[in-house]
Design a protein around this nucleic acid. Structure first.
Length: 1207
RNA sequence: GCCCCGGUGGUGGAAUUGGUAGACACGCAGGACUUAAAAUCCUGUGACCCGCAACGGUCGUAACGGUUCAACUCCGUUCCGGGGCACCA
C-alpha cells in the first residue's frame, strides 16, 4: 500500500466528524456524569475573518495549539480547544461601503471560507462551541457586561468594582468625602450629603458618570470630512487620509470610555501571577506607565496689582493667596472644617453660587488675611456673609464691624444676609448678589491678548520635583484651552499658526518627530519657590492626554528639554554642578543640588521628598502617582459593532433594562455618518426612537420611571466582544447567563493562550480588566483570564516585484540621449538634411530641408531602443523619413525590466527608482526569483497580456522584500494549495518545522518536500515499497512484526519519547519534528519493523500528524491477527511512558579542550573522578603535544560535559 | 522619538542551565538504480590554508569592546531588521 494521504485524510476527517470525536462536555451538562479527567483549556487568539481568507501565516499558532491540545488529551486531560470569530470590525464595513455588500453577508461568507480552510488542516475543534461576536445571541451578553460596567464604580477603599447603588447610598449619607471624584478636572470636586440631595437629577447623574466603570466623556478623533468618517491613527499620514489624501482634522466627539485606569495597580500586580514572557510583562507595565512624583501648580504671571500698604509679598501671590502667612496654617484647617460642615443656609446659597452659576467665580470659606469669609468673589472684590443667630449679640457685632472695616481697607465690599433671608427668599438674595457683582469693576487679570486670566494657573506633573529650581521653561500641549487664555498679543499669530499645524498631526507623528518645534506663548509662569519668571512654550511633543498636558522643563537634566532649550536659545540653569557639562543633559539622581535656593547642598535623592512636603504645606502641589495609561476609548462612530444599550433623555444616559437585550443592530441602507459625525445609526430615526413612549426604568428605582428617549448611536469597538469571548466558549449556548458560574468554575482560566505580540497592550490588557471587573462583581471566580501566554511569531511574506518603465516620467533627457547615441552611431541618416527639436516635451519634431516634417513620441523612441535595439530604431526613423508620409506613433505596450537591467538602462540607481514603477507581483507565478512570463501575461485577467520584457540571461528576475503577508502585496500563500499537494499532515509538520513558534520568519515553500519525504519514509517502516517487493503482489504489503525489540531499537524509542515529551511540553515543535525524523532515520537504518516500537511512535506522532497516525494505529491494531485488535482510536491512546533504563549510558565521549579550544575526544566512564581524569588526560598523546612540555595550571572537569586544560 | 523582540552556512534553523557551533531539513554537487524520467538510496557540502593522503592548522554565531578556564549564550556600545505606540484586528 502506498501512502495515499488524500484518501487517508478525507477518511479520517469524515470519521471524526461523524463520531463527534472532538466534542467536549461540561461537567454538569450532557450525560450528567462528572468527568474524571482534569481539565485543560487551550485557546488561540480570536481571529478576525478577513475576506482574504486564511494564508499560511494564520495556521501557525493554530497548529501549535492543536498539537498541544492533542498531546494533553493523550496525557489524560479533558481538553477545551475552541474556535470562533471576532466578527465585528472595520474591514467588513469598509467592504460594504465600497461594494455595497452588507457586512453581515460578507462576514458570513468569510467565516464559511475560514472554517472550510481550517477543517482542511484537521484541527480538533469542538465546532458546537463556535462563537461569533456579531450574532445577537453573543452580543446580548457583551451588552449585558457593558451594563454591569456602567452600573459599577471602582471603590478605591475596598479596591474593587462595586455596584453604583452602593455609592449612591454613601452619597446620600455622607457625600463624597470618602470617594473622591476620579477626574480632578470635574467642575464639582466635593459635596456633602445635603448638597448631594439638593442636586437635580441631571447633576447627580453627571456626577455618577464620573465614577462609572463605563462612562461617557468627550474625546478628540481624526475626522475626515471628505470620507465622512473618523480615521484610525494609522490611516492618517502627514495630516491627510491614507485613502484619497483628504485633509483630516481633530474633532471632539462624545465618546464612551472604560475606566481602566482604576485597575492600573491591579493590572500591574496581576502580572506577577501569570506566565507571560518577561518582555510581554514589560510592555504591559510600560504601557501602564506607573510613576510617582508631584503635581505642582505654577501661578501665571499677572499684570501687577497694587499691594496693600505695608505688604511686601510678590504680586503674583496676592491675587488668590489672600491669607496672612502667620495665621494661614491655623485658618486653613478651620476653613476645611467649615467647608465640610456648612450650615443648611450656607449650603443652599452655595448651590446657587457655585460653578460660575452667577457668571462669576465664587469661592467659599476663603481666607483673607486673618479672616475666613463665607463666600468671596475675588474678581469683583465682594465678600458675602450668611449670619446665624449669634451675630445678634453686642460683642459679635463689634467684632464684625472691625472685620468689615479691615476687609474694606483691603478693597473688599461686604454683603451680609441672615439665615432667614437666605432660607425664605433665596432667589432674591441671589439676585442681589448678582447685581452687586455685576456693578463692581473687575480686577480680573486680562492677558494682553484679551484672555481671561482669572484663576489661571498651570499645573504640571513631574517625576523629578527635586529639580524644581532647574526649571527654565514650561511646555504645554498646544491643544489646551489655557493656551488661548495666556497667549500674548505679539505671539498670537505665531501661536495660532502653530496650533493649526499641530491639529493636522497625528499623535504618533507628534511623538516620533525628531525635528524640534514649538512656539513661545508670550506668557510666564512663576516658580513658587524663588519667584523666577519662566517662559511658557507650546510644543507638539507634549500631549494633552498625558499627565496634566504640561511639563516643567529642566534642560540640564532632561535630554529632550535640553535640545529644546538649545534649539530656541533658552538659557540653561545648572543645578547639578559638575554632573552637567553643557554638552548634553544628565538625568542623574546622584548630584548634590546647586543653584537651588533652600535645597542647596541637598542630595537629589532626598530633595524630592523635601520639595513634595513643602508643596503640600504651601498648598501649591501634592504628591501624585501618575499613570501613562489613559482610560480606554470604548465607542466608534461606525455601524458594524455592538449597539450600546443606552437611552439618552435630557442629556442623561439611562441603561436599557436587561430584559430588552439584545438590542439588535438594525439594517441600514447607507454607512455614512450622522450629521454631527455620529455613527451611521444616527440616520435611522425609527431605530433610535424605538423606545419612545415605552417606559424605561431609571436608576435605583426611587427616581421613578422615565419615558424613553433616543438610543445611543455609537457602537462598541472591536475589543468589546473579544474581551470576554474565552468565557463564552465554556458555555456557548447559555441563554440565561453569559456563562454559568459552575461552568466557569470548572474550566477556570485559559491554561495556554497562543497569539501574537501585536496584542500585547490592547486586547490582553482589556480582557484582563474585564475579567477583573467580572470577578469583582462576583460573576466569575478568577481575576486573570490567561494563566500562560505563548507568543506566536508572524509568518511574513516574501514579496516579489516587477519593474515597469513609467513612460509618463520619461522627460526629454533619456530619449534625447538615446536618439543622440543612435544618430552618432551611423551617418546613414542624412543629418545635414534633417534637424530635430523637442515639442511639448513629449515629441521629437524632425524637419527636412525640403520642408517635410514628422514627429515621433518619446515613448516610442525609448520603447524601440530597449526592445529592438539601436539599429531597428535607426531603420524605423529612416523609413519614416523616406516615406514622407504622416507618421502616427505606435501604441506602446508596457515594458518590464528585469531587476538588474533597470540601473544599466538609465544610468544610476536613483534614476532607476525614478523611471521605474515597482509593482508587487503574485509570488505564486514566480519560481524563486524568476518570473513565469506566460503566467504573468494571464495574471489579473490579462492586464499585462501585451507586456514586453527586458530579460537577463533569458530570464526575468524579480526584486524581493520581506513584508507582512497580505493579499494586497500578492505575497500570500494559500494553505489549501499546499494541503492539496502534500496533505494536511505534511503541511502541519512543515509549518512547525520552519522554526520556533514564537519567531517571525518569511514563508518559503521550498522545504516542504523534506517533511513529505519523512512521512513517506515513516510509511515504509510499515509497508513494503513497490520497488522492494521481491515478487508480484508483494507491493505495499504490511511488514510489521511482533518480534521482540532489540536494545538498540528500544534506545531509539525511549530517547524519542523523552525528547518529544519535553519538546512538546515547551512548545519546541520544530525540534520535535526533527526528533521524529531522526527516529525514523535510525529505525530505517536498523530495519526495524516491530510493532513494539512502531505503535508508541505512532501515538507520539498523532498530535503532529493526526491522519497518518490514526490510519497506521488502526491498521497496526487489526493486524496481523484480528484477535489482537484492541478498541479505541489513537486520539484517546495514552502517551508512551519513558523508561530511563533503556537510554542510560555508562560512558561519555568527553571533549578535551586546551585553553578552551577543543583538541581531542576521550571516552571516559561517567563515574570517573577528577584525579583519574587528570591522570588520563596528562598521558594523552594529543594533550601532550599541545602542552609542549609545559605544566598545566589547572584541569577543569565538569561531569557529563567537558574537560578543559588551562596552560 | 519611545517601549519590546530578533540578527548563527547558499536557505529554514539546532545548540534546553556559560561547556564539542552548524543537529534536522532544504538547496547544490557527485554517484547508484533506470532506455529515460519520477521515486528511492549513497557520498560530499561554513570559509580559508597546508598536504599525496590520513591527519592537521587558522578564522568563524551582525560589528566593536569587556567578564570567564570556557561566550551564539552574560555585560556595554553601535549598526541592521521586525512588532507596538491607544479607531486595523
Amino acid at each position: 500500500m502506498e501512502y495515499k494521504f488524500r484518501e487517508i485524510e478525507k477518511k479520517w476527517q469524515e470519521h471524526w466528524n461523524a463520531t463527534k470525536a472532538y466534542k467536549v462536555s461540561n461537567p454538569s451538562t450532557g450525560s450528567g456524569q462528572a468527568p474524571l479527567k482534569p481539565k485543560f483549556y487551550v485557546l488561540d487568539m480570536f481571529p478576525y475573518p478577513s475576506g482574504a481568507g486564511l494564508h499560511v501565516g494564520h495556521p501557525l499558532g493554530y497548529i501549535a495549539s492543536d498539537i498541544y491540545s492533542r498531546f494533553k488529551r493523550l496525557k489524560g486531560f479533558n481538553v477545551l480547544h475552541p474556535m470562533g470569530y471576532d466578527a465585528f470590525g472595520l474591514p467588513a464595513e469598509q467592504y460594504a461601503i465600497e461594494h455595497g455588500v452588507h457586512p453581515a453577508v460578507s462576514t458570513e461568507q468569510n467565516i464559511n471560507n475560514f472554517r472550510r480552510q481550517l477543517n482542511n488542516i484537521g484541527f480538533c475543534y469542538d465546532w458546537d462551541r463556535e462563537v461569533r461576536t456579531c450574532e445577537p445571541g453573543y452580543y446580548k451578553w457583551t451588552q449585558w457586561i457593558f451594563l454591569q460596567l456602567f452600573n459599577s464604580f471602582y471603590n478605591r477603599t475596598s479596591n474593587k468594582a462595586e455596584k453604583i447603588d452602593g455609592l449612591i447610598a454613601v452619597f446620600e449619607k455622607e457625600g463624597n468625602a470618602t470617594h473622591p471624584i476620579p477626574n480632578s478636572q470635574f467642575a464639582i470636586s466635593s459635596f456633602n450629603a445635603i448638597e448631594w440631595k439638593s442636586f437635580d437629577e441631571k447633576t447627580q447623574q453627571d456626577i455618577l458618570m464620573q465614577y462609572r466603570l463605563a462612562y461617557c466623556g468627550y474625546g478628540e478623533v481624526n475626522w475626515c470630512e471628505a470620507l465622512g468618517t473618523v480615521l484610525a491613527n494609522d490611516e492618517v499620514v502627514n495630516g491627510v487620509s491614507e485613502r484619497g489624501g483628504h485633509p483630516v482634522v481633530k474633532k471632539k466627539l462624545r465618546q464612551w470610555y472604560l475606566r481602566i485606569t482604576e485597575y492600573a495597580d491591579r493590572l500591574l500586580e496581576g502580572l506577577e501571577r501569570i506566565e507571560f514572557s518577561d518582555s510581554m510583562k514589560e510592555m504591559q507595565s510600560n504601557w501602564i506607565g506607573k510613576s510617582s512624583g508631584a503635581e505642582i501648580t505654577f501661578e501665571i504671571q499677572m499684570p501687577p496689582l497694587t499691594p496693600p500698604e505695608g505688604e511686601n509679598r510678590p504680586a503674583s501671590e496676592l491675587h488668590r493667596q489672600t491669607a496672612r502667612a502667620s495665621t494661614y496654617g491655623l485658618l486653613k484647617e478651620l476653613s476645611k472644617e467649615h467647608k465640610q460642615s456648612p450650615t443648611e443656609e450656607e449650603n443652599m446659597l452655595w448651590q446657587y453660587l457655585r460653578s460660575h452659576k452667577t457668571g462669576h467665580h465664587i469661592r467659599r470659606q476663603h481666607i483673607i488675611d486673618q479672616y475666613i469669609v463665607d463666600f468671596v468673589c475675588l474678581d469683583r472684590r465682594v465678600t458675602i456673609e450668611v449670619d446665624g443667630g449669634y451675630h445678634n449679640n453686642e460683642e459679635q457685632r463689634k467684632y464684625d464691624e472691625a472685620r468689615t472695616a479691615f476687609l474694606n481697607e483691603l478693597g473688599f465690599e461686604e454683603m451680609r444676609f441672615t439665615n432667614e433671608e437666605v432660607k425664605q427668599n433665596t432667589d432674591a438674595v441671589v439676585e442681589k448678589i448678582i447685581q452687586k457683582l455685576n456693578s463692581k469693576p473687575s480686577v480680573r487679570k486680562v492677558s494682553p491678548s484679551g484672555g481671561d486670566l482669572e484663576g489661571a494657573s498651570l499645573t504640571v506633573y513631574t517625576t523629578r520635583p527635586d529639580t524644581i529650581f532647574g526649571v527654565d521653561f514650561m511646555v504645554i500641549a498646544p491643544e489646551l484651552d489655557l493656551v488661548d487664555q495666556i497667549k500674548s498679543a505679539e505671539q498670537t499669530a505665531a501661536v495660532d499658526e502653530y496650533i493649526a499645524y499641530v491639529k493636522s498631526r497625528s499623535e504618533r507623528e507628534r511623538q516620533a518627530e525628531k525635528k524640534i518645534t514649538g512656539v513661545f506663548t508670550g506668557a510666564y509662569a512663576v516658580n513658587p519657590f524663588d519667584g523666577r519668571e519662566i517662559p511658557i512654550w507650546i510644543s507638539e511633543y507634549v500631549l494633552a492626554g498625558y499627565g496634566t498636558g504640561a511639563i516643567m522643563a529642566v534642560p540640564c537634566g532632561d535630554e529632550r528639554d535640553f535640545k529644546f532649550a538649545k534649539h530656541f536659545n533658552i538659557p540653561i540653569t545648572n543645578i547639578i554642578g559638575k554632573h552637567f557639562n553643557g554638552e548634553e543633559a544628565n538625568a542623574t539622581k546622584d548630584a548634590i543640588l546647586e543653584n537651588s535656593g533652600f535645597l542647596n547642598g541637598t542630595p537629589m535623592r532626598e530633595a524630592a521628598e523635601i520639595v513634595i512636603n513643602k508643596l503640600e504645606e504651601l498648598e501649591i502641589g501634592k504628591r501624585k502617582v501618575n499613570y501613562k495609561m489613559r482610560d480606554a476609548a470604548f465607542s466608534r462612530q461606525r455601524y458594524w459593532g455592538e449597539p450600546f444599550p443606552i437611552i439618552w433623555k435630557d442629556g442623561i444616559a439611562y441603561p436599557l433594562p436587561e430584559d430588552q437585550l439584545p438590542l439588535t443592530l438594525p439594517n441600514v441602507e447607507s454607512y455614512s455618518p450622522g450629521p454631527e459625525g455620529e455613527g451611521p445609526l444616527a440616520n435611522i430615526p425609527d431605530w433610535i426612537h424605538q423606545f419612545e413612549g415605552s417606559q424605561v426604568p431609571s436608576f435605583g428605582g426611587d427616581l421613578g420611571e422615565v419615558r424613553g428617549g433616543a438610543l445611543e448611536t455609537n457602537t462598541m469597538p472591536g475589543y468589546a466582544g473579544s474581551s470576554w469571548y474565552f468565557l463564552r466558549y465554556m458555555d456557548p449556548q447559555n441563554d440565561n447567563a453569559f456563562c454559568d458560574r459552575s461552568v466557569s468554575d470548572y474550566w477556570n482560566q485559559v491554561d495556554i493562550y497562543i497569539g501574537g505580540t501585536e496584542h500585547a497592550v490592547g486586547h490582553l490588557l482589556y480582557s484582563r480588566m474585564w475579567t477583573k471587573a467580572l470577578y469583582d462583581l462576583g460573576h466569575i471566580g478568577f481575576d486573570e483570564p490567561f494563566k500562560k501566554l505563548v507568543n506566536q511569531g508572524m509568518i511574513q511574506g516574501s514579496s516579489r516585484f516587477v519593474y515597469r518603465l513609467n513612460y509618463s516620467k520619461i522627460g526629454f533627457e533619456l530619449p534625447s540621449s538615446i536618439l543622440a547615441r543612435c544618430l552618432a552611431q551611423t551617418a546613414s541618416i542624412e543629418q545635414p538634411n534633417y534637424n530635430y527639436r523637442v515639442v511639448n516635451n513629449k515629441f521629437f519634431l524632425f524637419n527636412h530641408t525640403d520642408g517635410h516634417t514628422f514627429t515621433i513620441h518619446f515613448d516610442e523612441i525609448v520603447y524601440t531602443y530597449y526592445t529592438k535595439g539601436a539599429s531597428v530604431l535607426i531603420d524605423l526613423l529612416r523609413s519614416i523619413m523616406d516615406s514622407k508620409a504622416v507618421y502616427v506613433s505606435a501604441q506602446i505596450p508596457p515594458l518590464f525590466f528585469s531587476i538588474n537591467k533597470r540601473e544599466m538602462s538609465v544610468g544610476t540607481s536613483s534614476l532607476a527608482e525614478y523611471y521605474f514603477d515597482q509593482l508587487h507581483v503574485d509570488v505564486n507565478i514566480v519560481d524563486g526569483y524568476a518570473l513565469d512570463i506566460e503566467a504573468f501575461k494571464k495574471w489579473r485577467n490579462g492586464e499585462y497580456a501585451n507586456a514586453e520584457f527586458i530579460l537577463e540571461d533569458g530570464k526575468y528576475i524579480c526584486g524581493s522584500e520581506v513584508e507582512k503577508m497580505s493579499k494586497s502585496k500578492f505575497n500570500t500563500v494559500n494553505p489549501d494549495d499546499l494541503v492539496n499537494k502534500y496533505g494536511a499532515d505534511t503541511f502541519r509538520m512543515y509549518e512547525m518545522f520552519l522554526g520556533p513558534v514564537e519567531i517571525s520568519k518569511p514563508w518559503d515553500t521550498k522545504g516542504i518536500e523534506g517533511v513529505h519525504r519523512f512521512l513517506k519514509k515513516l510509511w515504509r517502516l510499515f509497508y513494503l515499497p513497490a520497488e522492494a517487493s521481491a515478487k508480484e503482489g508483494d507491493e505495499g504489503k504490511a511488514i510489521w512484526t511482533n518480534e521482540k525489540a532489540t536494545d538498540a531499537e528500544l534506545k531509539v524509542l525511549h530517547k524519542t519519547i523523552k525528547k518529544i515529551e519535553e519538546d512538546t511540553e515547551r512548545f519546541s515543535f520544530n525540534t520535535g519534528v526533527s526528533t521524529f525524523m531522526i527516529a525514523v532515520n535510525e529505525l530505517s537504518d536498523l530495519k526495524c519493523h516491530k510493532k513494539e516500537i512502531l505503535e508508541p511512535l505512532v501515538i507520539m506522532l498523532s498530535p503532529y500528524a493526526p491522519h497518518i497516525a490514526a490510519e497506521l494505529y488502526a491498521e497496526l491494531r487489526k493486524a496481523p491477527s484480528p484477535s489482537e485488535r484492541a478498541g479505541g482510536e489513537v486520539l484517546d491512546a495514552s502517551f508512551p511512558k519513558f523508561e530511563a533504563k533503556y537510554v542510560t549510558e555508562s560512558t561519555k565521549d568527553y571533549p578535551v579542550a586546551i585553553n578552551g579550544k577543543t583538541r581531542t575526544e576521550l571516552t571516559l566512564d561517567l563515574s570517573i573522578t577528577q584525579a583519574e581524569v587528570e591522570q588520563i588526560v596528562l598521558n594523552n598523546e594529543v594533550v601532550l603535544k599541545w602542552l609542549e612540555g609545559k605544566q598545566p595550571k589547572k584541569i577543569i572537569y565538569v561531569k557529563n560535559k567537558m574537560i578543559n586544560i588551562v596552560v
